[in-house]
Design a protein around this nucleic acid. Structure first.
Lengths: 247, 247
DNA sequence: CGGCGTCCTTGTTTTGGATCAAACGCTGGT
DNA sequence: ACCAGCGTTTGATCCAAAACAAGGACGCCG
């Protein structure tokens, strides 16, 4: 079970088969537009690479906390986990990035977290300097970016509240509801909530252990709130799930 | 013990005695510059009010979670707590704002948190629309704002890690170190860390209870790391404190 | 000066979730 | 088909922090 890391050379052909002269593959364009709606697609920075990663053996980490921030990424396929590691190995996942999400937008010199693939992931990589220049040149774009950052901040503050003040069951329920809403924006609504990440990822995101996450899911299933299926859960009692999840 | 709420009328004289025609009192100008360094002081938006609050009976809440965001504030004196409340009364303090800090910069329509005074507080209030207009007109200003927001995001992610993955002692030590660094920027370095907030505020910030905070401080004092004094702690063993606080 | 209301500390008990331990069920390889 | 390895679930025990409880130590006000 080895990692698949395929890094196309700068300005290379896109995953979709387009050639370097054409700036965007449809996937990238569509996803980028989610954030860059204030600009026309032709005003986006030039794409550097398309990067594909598969979760496997830890070698797929493409953002390393503390390293110089040289790229901005946009997720087009799959799920990415963003995390901070303590020196003794404890890990806090600070978020999951899904198709349409950007990574490394902070305009800081160094990354504040690490990121790797949860499943099979495709990313568009942009040079951070191009991004910087674009930001300087296009106030609309900067404004969009700022809105994006403040939205992230709101999410982070909600997560703080979740971890700091809510029980294991509330955390898990809130996580399920949040995942359902995120998938709904990407793929449309569904009673099946895809959970491509492992239990340990949920645990490290929610400030719990793997056993507690497992037990809590089992309890929710026993209570008839959800049905546990591989890589997902099916929502059986939406009202109850929401009532546990809501503050 | 009643609340002191003094709200000068729009464009009224400043706390320092300046008249409406003069846009800024020194305090505001100095503090605003901390964030708006990319602009000259004359390019700042016009000040609406100077607001003074004293922590007392809960009536001093000047930002209410969920309400329409009509103002942006800048703290010039004292400490403000920002928090989220759950419906059953559980509270998570998401941050403390100190002199030089801005509140409500998100450019969202509604506030995502509440804010009130920890001690005697003075704030400059700006109309959010003026702020918006300025942001639209001056890209430098927006860029500064964006850097500010992403810095907040980094802090929030660190706090998530603190609350999600670290022990009570580590949380308290990290809090003390962070407070010392913040005061150092405002007043210069000192072995005495001012703690104007109550134990319950620290507890709600760190995801602990008041008793655990108290016990942990006592333990740190017993171990010769700090000396507890009213409204503050004195650092006796900096190296040890840092080694507990650092990840 | 005395009583009262806060806030803080300290002691005791309880508990939610962590930790330790073991078995289960896939999946992939031989 | 069998086995090995991993992720997950379940069970038993432990423990850090919560919850409960009771004293102090101020500061304020009558």
């Amino acid at each position: 079970m080895t990692a698949t890391i395929e890094l196309t050379s700068p300005k290379a052909a896109h995953a979709c088969g387009r050639q370097p002269g054409e700036n965007y593959c449809d996937s990238c364009k569509v996803r980028s537009l989610a954030v860059c709606a204030a600009l026309g697609p032709d005003e986006l920075p030039e794409l550097d690479d398309i990067v594909h990663h598969t979760r496997a053996d830890g070698k797929t980490t493409f953002i390393h906390q503390g390293e110089t921030a040289e790229s901005v990424f946009s997720v087009t396929e799959g799920v990415v986990r963003l995390y901070k590691l303590l020196s003794d190995g404890r890990r806090q996942i600070i978020g999951f990035a899904m198709p349409g999400d950007f990574l490394g937008l902070a305009l800081h010199n160094r990354y504040g977290f690490s990121a790797d693939a949860v499943d099979d992931v495709a990313l568009c990589r942009f040079d951070r300097r191009d991004f910087d220049n674009l930001v300087t040149a296009k106030p609309h774009f900067l404004r969009r970016l700022h809105e994006f950052a403040t939205h992230e901040l709101v999410i982070a503050q909600e997560q703080m509240t979740l971890i700091g003040r809510r029980s294991a069951e509330e955390r898990v329920a809130a996580f399920l509801v949040a995942m359902r809403e995120r998938w709904a924006r990407i793929k449309g609504p569904s009673v099946t909530i895809q959970l491509p990440m492992q239990r340990i990822d949920m645990a490290d995101y929610l400030g719990l252990t793997i056993e507690t996450v497992s037990r809590t899911l089992t309890k929710l299933a026993r209570d008839g709130v959800i049905l546990i299926v591989p890589e997902a859960v099916r929502v059986l009692d939406e009202k109850k799930l929401l009532s546990i999840a809501r503050a």
